[in-house]
């Protein structure tokens, strides 16, 4: 079965599968026989860090609202396509993750590298802003739910901020 571009899963993530998903041209669309294929791929892997805000982190438990997360990923994909000529895959893991395990993976392909770097950064910034996913941090001495951004996909200021970071 081909790797989906967007996924939320408790299974370990597989970067090679994401890269493959954005490298393979979609069944050579007959109406675009001369479409330019990928010339560059940028990937991002977020991993569980052993420290946060001075605390010694033991593990993270990720919770998500799966159907809304997939829609948020599709939305991020559409936003990305508005600005860059790229193909993008985005997978987020849920459940219990140990230090060093990958929690999120992104792969972006394009004919040229400038677009892949910018779009990849944009995608992770938007994930942090609007993906309905939460970290429950277990550290030495306790546990805490991490709360970051109030998710509002229509907040154009947040979207602009993500774009500015991507193109900095």
């Amino acid at each position: 079965m081909p790797t989906p571009l967007y996924a939320v899963t408790t299974d370990p993530l597989d970067l090679a599968a994401l890269v493959s998903a954005v490298t393979t041209l979609p069944a050579h669309a007959p109406d675009e026989p001369r479409a330019v294929g990928p010339g560059a791929i940028t990937s991002f892997v977020g991993v569980v860090r052993n420290e946060n805000a001075g605390r010694r982190v033991l593990r993270l438990e990720y919770e998500g609202y799966e159907p809304l997360a997939l829609r948020a990923f599709e939305r991020i994909g559409a936003e990305t396509a508005e600005r860059w000529a790229v193909r993008m895959a985005l997978h987020h893991r849920l459940g219990t993750l140990q230090i060093g395990e990958a929690s999120v993976m992104i792969a972006v392909s394009s004919p040229h590298r400038a677009d892949t770097f910018a779009a990849c950064r944009y995608v992770i910034e938007r994930v942090k802003q609007i993906a309905p996913v939460w970290k429950h941090e277990f550290f030495e001495g306790g546990d805490v739910w991490i709360e970051g951004a109030t998710a509002d996909p229509d907040d154009n200021e947040a979207r602009q901020d993500a774009y500015d970071r991507a193109c900095a």
Partner: peptide, 10 residues
């Protein structure tokens, strides 16, 4: 109807 605290994915 879902209620979501501030998100912290990634």
């Amino acid at each position: 109807v879902a209620f979501l605290p501030p998100v912290s994915g990634g």
